[in-house]
Design a protein around this nucleic acid. Sequence first.
DNA 1: ACCTGAACACCGTTCAAGT
DNA 2: ACCTGAACACCGTTCAAGT
Lengths: 190, 190
Amino acid sequence: MDVKRAGPRRPYHHGNLKAALLDAAERVLARDGLAGLTLRAAAREAGVSHAAPRHAVGDLSGLLAELAARGFDRLRARMEAEAGAGVHGLGRCYVDFARGNPDLFRLMFRHERLESGRPALVAARRALLETLGRSMAREEAGGDARLAMLAAWAQAHGLAMLLLDRQLPPELASDDVVGPLLGTDAVHPR
Amino acid sequence: MDVKRAGPRRPYHHGNLKAALLDAAERVLARDGLAGLTLRAAAREAGVSHAAPRHAVGDLSGLLAELAARGFDRLRARMEAEAGAGVHGLGRCYVDFARGNPDLFRLMFRHERLESGRPALVAARRALLETLGRSMAREEAGGDARLAMLAAWAQAHGLAMLLLDRQLPPELASDDVVGPLLGTDAVHPR
DNA sequence: ACCTGAACACCGTTCAAGT
DNA sequence: ACCTGAACACCGTTCAAGT
């Protein structure tokens, strides 16, 4: 009955269940992959009952959306840091992030599983988009900036997805093909 | 007991349960989407017990792999028909297929859920790759054919995925941006 | 307000048993 | 050989009940 004094065994249970749940979910994601990330598993990892998440994040799509928002925030931070490296720097950064956080990256774009209206997700996506737009505009003064941006984004995203999904045969996945693709000014459709 | 005479109510149950199951799975996919396509739902739709698929396709990843193989076959057939249309024709064809069969397209690249060693899937993927390679080689005589192919593929694939996953803001998803991207010689990294 | 525990309707997979 | 039905361990979600 001295539990309420916040003994070391139960660090949360007050108002920060949401944050604790998200941390727990990230641990599950790292340990068991996207397939192993269930609402019950996250609750278990956080040390609460399987019905507790309801108040904190709604349902599973709410939890995943919050997690995706964290992912977009992190990706944006990296892109921001790389802002001076030009378009190839951004592309490389994007693909590196995907390869370094495959499950999180996949989750971020699994639109069917995300509560798309979640404020955190909407905001994080918009922030990333703004960062991308600013970085592109700096280089691509002439021509259609939107077209240049879409072309570069699509190429980086497609490469990331094809790599994560193991769709590339060895000849195409080798560094002497992927490297040059990332190391150029990408895509100049006219 | 006249069931064995193949009355109209049970068209299969002989040796073609596999084909019947795949047809049923496609119906479920069209009706309930990828999320609704379960092994039990496919068995139900095919009119067999939920344990029957085991002999026909192994487990769920086997069923999905066989379905993905059908998808790759269909995509290859379309690409083959469009072979004369140049790289932009291929890109447009690829994206059109994705938009026209969103659930099937997503399934084809959901590598975690597919039994990757399934002969049908391996063969279908290789056939598509060969078709792509042949089509590209025809135009891209000079330069690195592998690089040109990866660049074009990544761009088309990324665009398709970003569209299906609803990641593009209205300014980028509009036809006057997507259209031009698909209507050029794509991507010429050097 | 926030969390628990039981309950419900689903899963995938296994396995003895039927034909 | 091929299929069924029961069983098991999981899900997500709901809801009365506790504090």
